[in-house]
């Protein structure tokens, strides 16, 4: 996929991942054939709007989907076939190899346990160390995520911490067993602006220091620009564009990415309408034939409705699934050139 890259085995390979939720009334195609990979120490942003399948993809990687979800495809994490893991192996895979930071720490943390109990439980389960040693490591972790006066806060319950500190604690728990792959599901969306930037900067620094591969799910182009090395843009369950963050956000190759950038409010002149993408995303129970963005796309041609476009590679390391990539790339740049 990555034309010009050195052929080191990637940390994560996802090939043709599909997730369906089947109920009595309908089948929801949450993810349809997502393919991407991630090198160690790299940050990939899965960018997409609600219903694009980004969070479902993330949960599929960590095997967190409920039993009724039908998962197909291949997910390889650090040489392990993640979809085949069972029992003990799956337990040490979750938390040990892969860890996750959730959007809402208030619901992701158990309210009856202190931050310290959450942390020491994880550490003792995965590392098999004693109580005192686990507590010392826990304090170290809280210092690592820059929680002030960690010795005192370690005995705090989740509700006693502010939103920003809770999310930091959540990150500390995720990091406690030294995961190779960190999955973050909109970890800063619920935070206030002044807190969000602090957590983003912290995550970026930790990721660089610890060399973790990170997948960061977000709907916010600004967050992607702030933290990502590469972005994969998802729409209606498919990765429709992928590439280095600077290239994609400077010169999008897919009309959806371009439209998303143009419609994001960002220094537009107050007396002009915003170039909104018309319509709304497709119903995942009834995906349109062909390209799922075609009904909203002003560049759509009859051929777009025939079949989903195969990937094209307009530049080294870049991929887009659109028949009119060349036309999109020639358009004037979307946002403040």
């Amino acid at each position: 996929m990555d034309g010009g890259m050195v052929a080191a085995a990637p940390l994560l390979e996802v090939e043709d991942l599909s997730v369906q939720f089947v109920t009595r009334e309908a089948t929801v195609n949450a993810v349809s054939g997502a393919t991407f990979n991630l090198k160690a120490g790299e940050v990939l942003c899965l960018l997409g709007e609600s219903g694009s399948g980004k969070s479902v993809t993330l949960r599929a990687l960590m095997r967190l989907l409920p039993g009724r979800a039908r998962v197909k495809g291949r997910v390889n994490v650090a040489g392990q076939d993640a979809l085949a893991l069972k029992g003990r192996a799956l337990q040490s895979f979750r938390g040990g190899t892969v860890a996750m930071v959730f959007q809402e720490p208030m619901t992701a943390l158990d309210p009856v346990y202190t931050i310290g109990q959450h942390l020491t439980e994880m550490i003792r389960r995965h590392k098999g160390v004693g109580r005192a040693e686990a507590r010392a490591q826990a304090i170290e972790l809280l210092n690592l995520v820059k929680i002030p006066s960690a010795e005192r806060r370690i005995d705090a319950y989740p509700h006693e911490l502010s939103g920003g500190l809770r999310q930091r604690a959540m990150i500390a728990i995720a990091l406690s067993c030294g995961p190779k792959l960190l999955l973050a599901d909109e970890p800063t969306t619920a935070l206030d602006a002044t807190v969000q930037i602090q957590v983003l900067i912290l995550l970026r620094r930790l990721q660089q220091e610890l060399g973790m591969g990170t997948i960061f799910v977000t709907h916010d182009l600004g967050v992607a620009a702030e933290i990502a090395d590469r972005v994969a843009v998802m729409y209606a369950g498919r990765v429709i564009e992928e590439g280095p963050v600077a290239d994609v956000l400077r010169r999008p190759a897919h009309p959806y990415t371009a439209g998303l950038m143009a419609s994001t409010v960002h220094d537009q002149a107050p007396d002009q309408d915003i170039a909104a993408i018309p319509g709304s995303p497709p119903d995942l129970r009834r995906l349109p034939p062909g390209c799922s963005f075609a009904p909203r796309c002003s560049l759509a041609m009859p051929a777009c409705r025939q079949g989903f476009p195969e990937p094209v590679f307009p530049a080294p390391g870049r991929m887009a699934r659109c028949l009119r990539v060349a036309d999109v790339l020639q358009q004037p740049v979307g946002v403040h050139a």
Binding site: G259, S263, Q272, A275, A276, Q331, V333, A337
Partner: peptide, 15 residues
């Protein structure tokens, strides 16, 4: 420049 990609206000109505 704020000139967006030609996606703009196509003939497709919002509803």
């Amino acid at each position: 420049m704020n000139k967006p990609v030609a996606l703009a206000v196509a003939e497709i109505p919002a509803d």
